[in-house]
Design a protein around this nucleic acid. Structure first.
Length: 204
DNA sequence: GTACAGATTGAG
DNA sequence: TCAATCTGTACT
């Protein structure tokens, strides 16, 4: 398989497809002159305005969430709990609020090689940690990652033929039974032991 | 204006 | 189990 940069056509796919396909790809970020990157090992899909967990439920648009409405391939990043950034990538067509949350990566570029596998992954095994390690914050709000200078995604799989599992999304209990239980969280099975445990069941 | 919850994390 | 810390929203 060729190893290119994820382009507009890729991010025009529906968020569920993007969430699944991103697993095994590598996200890169240049921050303060340093390039860091890691294999994406956990994502969540926020498929659209019908989703009660979405910040854009029923089409609600605010200053904070407007990047979620951009055409697929833009950074939608926001602060939760007053201190942690969450990095999402918009998906689908312009005006349709949907995105994929990057929840965990395995650092492969720009990391401290003295760390054990476990120590390294534990630096980036949650959405707030991913942003902290990659150097992502509000400064990158709305950035177009298909332009590929500062933030980009390499499509060639950094990890080949790994099994993908699904679970309900994490910490969205407020979204009602149907949406809170829908298996829209995707992860690579090999990393499951490092990642957040779902309250309910696993899906193959 | 005040109150409060939230797509989290790390300490106790 | 719980506090840190800020934004959007629902109230008074």
């Amino acid at each position: 398989m060729g190893s290119g940069t994820a382009d507009r056509a890729f991010f025009l796919l529906q968020s569920r497809s993007v969430a699944r396909l991103l697993l095994g790809m590598t996200i890169f970020c240049t921050s303060q002159g340093t390039v860091r990157g890691g294999v994406i090992i956990e994502t969540e899909s926020y498929p659209g305005p019908q989703d009660k967990a979405s910040h854009a439920y029923q089409g609600k648009r605010t200053a904070r969430n407007q990047a979620e409405f951009l055409i697929g391939g833009h950074i939608y990043i926001y602060l939760v709990y007053g201190m942690y950034w969450q990095c999402n990538i918009s998906t689908g067509k312009e005006g349709w609020p949907s995105c994929v949350l990057i929840r965990a990566i395995n650092p492969t570029v720009g990391h401290d090689t003295r760390l054990s596998n476990r120590e390294r992954i534990q630096l980036t095994n949650g959405p707030g940690k991913v942003c902290r390690w990659l150097g992502l914050s509000g400064e990158q709000y709305g950035y177009d990652i298909t332009k590929g200078k500062e933030i980009w995604i390499q499509t060639g799989k950094g990890e080949l033929a790994r099994r993908i599992n699904r679970t309900p999304r994490i910490n969205i209990d407020y979204a009602g039974r149907e949406w809170a239980s829908r298996p829209l969280r995707y992860l690579l099975e090999d990393y499951q032991s490092f990642l957040a445990k779902p309250k309910s069941k696993w899906y193959k």
